[in-house]
Design a protein around this nucleic acid. Structure first.
Lengths: 204, 204
DNA sequence: CGAGGATTTCCTCATTCGTGGAATTAAAGT
DNA sequence: ACTTTAATTCCACGAATGAGGAAATCCTCG
């Protein structure tokens, strides 16, 4: 135990030597905490503690909490793109492709925390709700993104998005046993035909 | 001017004469604030202010915040029952009946705030998530409540619940324009056939 | 009418939070 | 070598929060 005195040891101030990937450590911790606790629930102090860093550093790098949140969810912009990609290709497999892509996004440890942070925060924070609205509305459900989709198809695509959103909320946020206990394949088999019907328009 | 002095007039302490429906006023204010801001977002002080009452009264009547929340969402137990009722009757109209009942629950000014409070809080507060799980799981998706439903039908009913939950989240929480702009009839026409298919089992 | 309980207010306490300032050390630029 | 910039810490402030104590007022029951 050498000596070390009190357990409240003062850490040295000033810049660290070498390249400390502190900024990324903050982003990682923030991503995880926002995913688990939502925007309001995850405090700057808790994020800093998880990153092993002083809270003031967060302010130094990101300015304020909203910017930090935006930084953690931004850049994973590949998420809407992957879904858009799944919309193109063999129409016979459309439902399976979209559902599979979506469910895998919610299982991928890279993208899952971001989605969870967005959804969990969107119900409480207006800012996060606006972000999710923007992602869903402007980057997915618009005619610029989906050329050739008429209004009717976009409307049914929006209903698909709601369906899949509900599945994710039940499975990963509320953790409803009847849904979260299902293996992905079983969920796929149930949901994919519905998505297929919504998207290909034989819906009556 | 007699005296009366400052505009910060102290309100008289002690019991009011007559029957002041204060407890109900608190419950009403709590219902609305929980619906708008969620469990964490709605502070005891804000609820008290909305009810025109001292914060300590809430503690006096309900003890702590969780009990207050539980009291506001309890008693509206009619909600799961109405859905269960919709499940019985002419099987040909099943999808329409369930969807109609559900969408009306989300428009009824009596039940809407409760649903909104539950959903909005469930993503942040573990306690609220447990409540929603209990309502959905034990009071709706169990074989005691739905005699004669085998496991496969209950599983597909859970997927229905997720679909409808997603619709409500998109429409009333995130306020996704593509969904919230739709009139109820249009939404019905799109969604009811899907619910019908899930529930009657011709799902492949 | 008097005693006990219910209703209501005010004040206080300990925490927690987001934000900001000031100081210290290392790196980068000239 | 000297100056500027970047990274890092500690400390503090003001606001808000949930919880609780103490007193005042009214009602009810004997």
């Amino acid at each position: 135990m050498t000596e070390s005195g009190q357990n409240t040891r003062k850490r040295p101030t000033g810049r660290r030597t070498g390249d400390s990937g502190t900024r990324d450590a903050i982003l990682d911790a923030a991503r995880d905490l926002f995913a688990d606790l939502g925007f309001d629930g995850a405090s700057i102090r808790a994020i800093a503690a998880a990153a092993g860093v002083d809270p003031a550093l967060i302010r130094h790098f990101f300015g304020d909490k909203e910017t930090l949140f935006a930084s953690t969810v931004a850049d994973r912009t590949a998420i809407p793109q992957r879904l858009v990609d799944a919309l193109t290709g063999d129409p016979a497999q459309l439902g399976r492709r979209v559902t599979d892509t979506y469910l895998k996004l919610w299982e991928d440890p890279e993208t899952q925390p971001v989605l969870q942070a967005l959804v969990r925060s969107a119900t409480t924070s207006d800012r996060a709700a606006a972000m999710l609205r923007e992602v869903l509305g402007a980057r997915l459900l618009s005619q610029e993104i989906l050329p050739g989709f008429d209004e009717d198809r976009i409307r049914r695509l929006a209903i698909c998005a709601s369906h899949l959103l509900g599945i994710a909320v039940a499975r990963y946020i509320i953790k409803l046993p009847a849904i979260s206990a299902l293996p992905r394949d079983a969920l796929m088999d149930e949901v994919a035909p519905t998505i297929q019907r919504y998207l290909t328009g034989q819906h009556q």
